[in-house]
């Protein structure tokens, strides 16, 4: 079954939109079947339980057991490889 990833940022206007598409592209290119959705950071706690992983450009809390990777690498281009390794570890 496809793993579900939630991408969170401040307003869900600019950064999470870009991060979500980038993560989806990179994972699909590596053969991972994923569903990537985006939300505002404030909405993350209510949605977290439906996702296998949260990627956030800003600190998020109250998301229970769902693992969080906080990073801006997908925006700056620096550190993407390391973050992709972490993401793939979480997806198993």
């Amino acid at each position: 079954m496809a793993k579900k990833i939630l991408v969170a940022c401040g307003t869900a206007i600019a950064t999470s939109t870009v991060v979500a598409r980038k993560v989806e592209e990179l994972l699909k290119a590596k053969g991972y079947d994923v569903i990537v959705e985006q939300c505002k950071a404030a909405e993350a706690p209510a949605k977290a339980s439906q996702y296998d992983l949260i990627i956030a450009t800003t600190p998020v809390s109250g998301v229970g057991n769902t693992p969080v990777i906080q990073t801006i690498s997908f925006l700056t281009g620096m550190g993407i490889e390391d973050d992709m390794k972490k993401i793939i570890e979480y997806l198993g």
């Binding site: 940022c9 401040g10 307003t11 950064t15 950071a41 800003t58 801006i72 925006l75 700056t76 281009g77 620096m78």
Partner: peptide, 12 residues
């Protein structure tokens, strides 16, 4: 928004 979710990005 800038106070709560700042937008500075350190580049190369």
């Amino acid at each position: 928004r800038e106070q709560v979710y700042p937008t500075g990005l350190p580049l190369a």
